[in-house]
């Protein structure tokens, strides 16, 4: 059997490669970066919502299945340069450090994931200009290392705000979709802050709270046990206040029907999910149809979310839309099974 090619070393790709190896299939795992673990590793996610479980407890077992596995050929700092369908599977060209290598693979799993929204594009929030405006990319490592300090002066903040839906549900930046995890992750971060530093006040500016399913529990707990405050309204702009030492969030409290201008020491933007650069490249290489949002579209997403509709090509994880880590892992398993069946038959 020719090996199965897994593109992407995030939760979905790791899960797929691990399952394929345990099914006995030879696997090539290709990762663009020089390390495995995808976005959770790249941005040093702290605890995972909703159970506040350290990210390592999820990622380490996934990584443990890969490292030192004789059935998995690990190709870090490698990208896909070319792919052409052959009678069964694909002939692919892998590029690493400028060198090209041609390989025959029996099937391909696309697990190229998402990129966090670049918050600089939402210029009215001043991300990139004001050092104390952060987004998910920076706050998680702060929480991870337990040093929640203002980047501007290194002092602990007294009052923090989270702004939901930055780069999500917003036609002005061309991202009309919901990122699904911004609400619960923001609430989780606020809980993490309040748990360790109850002296810091935490406010969440929201339009809708979408802690769907069992995640609702954390939303309730955040108010009842951790005293996180929720203000309904979207912040219109962030400016400097008090001689530049604090941030001013201007918005409308739509429940009060009143303008609010509240100074904060730190503001966290809940940066959404976009199809990753890799996802876009893969779509071009395989000539795949993408939806209006730029994510890959499964043939019938209700019936089989991992089935691309193209023989020998399968999807897993956030390449087909915003997804939480457990969903990505589940899809990795599903894609592994389908790829294995296809390669075997």
């Amino acid at each position: 059997m020719n090996p199965v090619l897994v593109l992407g070393g995030g939760p979905a790709g790791l899960s797929a490669a691990g399952e394929l190896a345990s099914l006995g299939a030879p696997t090539i795992l290709v990762e663009r970066e020089g390390y495995l673990g995808g976005n959770p590793k790249r941005w040093h996610y702290s605890l995972l919502a909703p159970d506040l479980r350290p990210t390592e407890e999820v990622m380490d077992p996934l990584l443990g299945k890969i490292e030192g596995n004789s059935r998995i050929e690990l190709r870090l700092s490698t990208t896909l340069a070319k792919a052409e369908p052959v009678e069964k599977g694909y002939r692919v060209t892998l590029r690493s450090a400028g060198a090209l290598e041609e390989r025959d693979v029996s099937s391909v799993i696309v697990a190229t994931g998402f990129d966090h929204f670049d918050s600089r594009r939402k210029f009215e929030y001043g991300y990139g200009r004001y050092p104390d405006v952060l987004d998910f990319k920076e706050i998680e490592i702060m929480l991870h290392e337990d040093r929640v300090l203002r980047p501007s002066d290194g002092k602990p903040p007294k009052r923090m705000a989270w702004i939901l839906c930055v780069g999500s549900r917003d036609v002005q930046v061309g991202n009309p979709w919901c990122c699904r995890m911004g609400c619960v992750v923001s609430i989780k971060q606020a809980v993490e802050v309040r748990r360790k530093h109850p002296e810091i006040d935490a406010y969440v500016y929201y339009m809708d709270i979408r802690t769907y399913g069992l995640w609702e529990d954390l939303y309730w707990k955040s108010m009842q046990e951790y005293g996180v405050k929720f203000v309904r309204g979207r912040i219109g702009q962030i400016t400097l206040a008090e001689g530049g030492s604090r941030l001013m969030a201007t918005g409308e409290d739509t429940i009060l029907s009143r303008p609010t201008e509240v100074p904060f020491d730190m503001i966290i933007l809940a940066s959404g999910m976009e199809p990753s650069a890799g996802t876009k490249e893969v779509a071009t290489l395989f000539g795949l149809s993408v939806g209006p949002e730029g994510f890959l579209t499964p043939r019938i997403s209700d019936l089989n979310p991992v089935d691309s509709g193209v023989p020998g090509l399968f999807f897993a994880g956030a390449a087909t839309g915003p997804k939480a880590i457990p969903d990505a892992i589940t899809e990795g398993m599903g894609a592994a099974l389908r790829a294995f069946q296809y390669a075997r038959d």
Partner: peptide, 10 residues
Amino acid sequence: CWQCGTCTAG
């Protein structure tokens, strides 16, 4: 319109 208040905020 979904009543987020961005218009009023600015």
